[in-house]
Simulated scan of single mutants.
Amino acid sequence: MTAVGFLYPGHSAEDDYPRIEMLLDDDDVRLSVVHTDIGEDAHRVDALLEMGSPARLAAGVEELRLSGAEAVVWACTSGSFVFGWDGAHDQVRALARAAGLPASSTSFAFAHAVRDLGATRVAVAATYPDDVAAYFSDFLKAAGIEVVSARASGIVTAAEVGTWSRDEVLALARAGDHPDAEAVLLPDTALHTAAYVADLEAALGKPVLTANQVTVWEGLRLAGRRVRGRRLGTLFARRD
């Protein structure tokens, strides 16, 4: 049994994690979610810096250790990339020290997943306001990834994002796509996407990376597992 722990901010789309667990081809994987206190629910830089502060993340670590987790991922994109490339590294190093486990975040999960696909040019379809979306583009550029287009939707709260339906997610991905992009990225763990990844890839005709999908993939990578999931898109299409 491989156990991976996720620190998830608040309550929006955490049900993606048990869904992904069910969609994995292997039944010996356990995904454990511990909720962190988000403070103010706002896609605003100051609120996001507080949401991703070391004290808020450390508060959930003991519960994850008790779950038997072999690795931990901070399941938040905006609450990691807003610290910048170097600051996001400091964040996961502090989390690893607090947990005594390999650690990462959703922002690094996107960077690693893009590289795993062999892609260099991506389009970003974000739920965030423009200024927050720009931080994500800057983070990807620091990872050596070219952002050929970035679309922001201006949504301020995770609570609102969590209500979006399949049709709204598909519309976001289509609107954010670009002919030169080798993959399309949807960077918000508050967005329900686990059930739609295959539909998104079919609609766009290219790999689609979504926040909760890449977060699980990153946790499994840290735990030394490569697990297939035929309904979870190109990223989970092979095992090597």
Rank of each mutant, 00 (worst) to 15 (best):
G5I: 04
D15H: 15
D16E: 14
D25P: 03
D26W: 06
V34C: 06
H35F: 03
I38R: 02
E40N: 04
H43C: 10
V45N: 00
L49I: 07
A59G: 11
E62M: 09
E62D: 14
L64D: 03
L64M: 13
L64E: 12
R65Q: 08
E70V: 03
A71S: 13
C76V: 14
D86I: 08
D86N: 12
G100F: 07
S104T: 09
S107L: 11
H112K: 04
D116F: 01
D116M: 04
L117D: 14
A119P: 00
A123Y: 07
A123V: 06
P129H: 10
Y135H: 13
F139C: 00
A142H: 11
G144I: 12
R151K: 09
S153A: 11
S153C: 03
V156W: 05
A159R: 08
W164S: 02
A173G: 10
G176R: 14
D177I: 10
H178M: 11
L185M: 10
H192Q: 15
T193Y: 06
A194T: 06
A202L: 10
K206N: 08
Q213I: 15
V214K: 13
G219Y: 00
L222P: 00
G224W: 11
R225K: 14
R226I: 04
R228V: 05
G229L: 13
R231C: 01
R238S: 10
D240M: 05
